[in-house]
């Protein structure tokens, strides 16, 4: 078996954003389920949170290849 430690590091670093994305959408879904008219308020917030968390995951992905 061969490989580099970079990929192990990327696997570890992907845990955080994965949990973050799950929590963001869990909160978004339960918010919309309780109060459907709040959707237009919650949607941009959820998407921006998703974008921030996802940016970190992609950072890890790119750094795993660059370093």
């Amino acid at each position: 078996m061969e490989g580099t430690l970079n990929l192990v590091g990327y696997g570890l670093s992907a845990i955080g954003p994965a949990i973050a994305t799950g929590m963001i959408f869990a909160a978004y879904i339960s918010g919309v389920a309780r109060q459907p008219e709040a959707r237009s308020v919650l949607q941009p917030i959820a998407f921006l949170g998703f974008a921030l968390a996802e940016a970190l995951a992609l950072f890890g992905l790119v750094l795993a290849f660059v370093l």
Partner: peptide, 23 residues
């Protein structure tokens, strides 16, 4: 590399805000 990646991440989050976050 790191500076460019930070700049790119910042710019794309700004773009996401322009496209989807602004009302």
């Amino acid at each position: 590399v790191l500076a460019g990646m930070l700049l790119g991440a910042g710019a794309s989050i700004y773009l996401v805000w322009l496209r989807f976050g602004r009302d």
